[in-house]
Amino acid sequence: MHRSLFASFALYSAALLLTLFTLAPLVWLVLMSISSPNDLTSVPLNWWPTEVDLSRYGHLVDLNNGAGHRFLAALRNSLLTAGGATLIALIVAVPAAYAFSRRGASLALLFVFLATIMMPPITYVLPLYEIFGGLGALNKTTTLIIVYSAMLLPFATWLMKSNIDVLPVEIEQAAFMEGASTAFTLRRVVLPLALPAIAATCMLSFLVAWDEFFYALIFTSDLSAKTLPVAIADFSAGRVTDYGVIASVGVLATLPPAILAICFQRFIVSGLAAGSVKG
């Protein structure tokens, strides 16, 4: 079908508008991070930096700089927390997913699992806070890892279950027939076959944990455990007068998920679709 000139014009205008709407806030965040403080405080703004100023990034990766010290500590905590929680969630989720997919565990139970992450965390955070407080476990990366793995677990179980569902069951039956136990079959047969699914699940889980703010805000109180989102909130609320610093922290915190999202878009989109729509 041929499009009329008007339709083409409308189409490309809409595409341009969408591109601007999507990219403008991001581009501006990047520009802020490399503009001089003077450019950022002129009225009206100096949109294009008079000179490219990368010094903030330099400071942020410098342990001896105050901001850098805080940023790098938060980065370390975020990596540890998100990575650790993803690992634990996967280790717990895979057997559970197998039980749902192949051992006839009731799907109602899976829905209960999922309901736990749909409940607002505010509805159970206080008892948790008091329990961890009583154990002297507040402000510890380990505590956050445990809480995050509970947060990631239902979705990871769900995603792995839908992926195990589509593996050919005869291959597992063959393994059982050959005398393998369930654990052996999981390790030697199911996991290798589900590797792409595991990778996708890990990635999505990591991104969710990387993004988490609420628990981190409540359970952490200083550099030893604060994650990037909390550190960024601190930066933006604190005494920093140079908005470019906040912007550059934001850019750095966005880079890992943005790169993952662009590189593994197909994975992520199908994972999100499976996770949110398919029942």
Partner: peptide
């Protein structure tokens, strides 16, 4: 009894070879 303990072997229609 578990299939594993029946001392039997099976050839499946789809062959069910371990692809990995």
């Amino acid at each position: 009894t578990d299939p594993a303990k029946r001392d039997i072997a099976m050839v499946f229609q789809s062959y069910a070879l371990f692809p990995n």
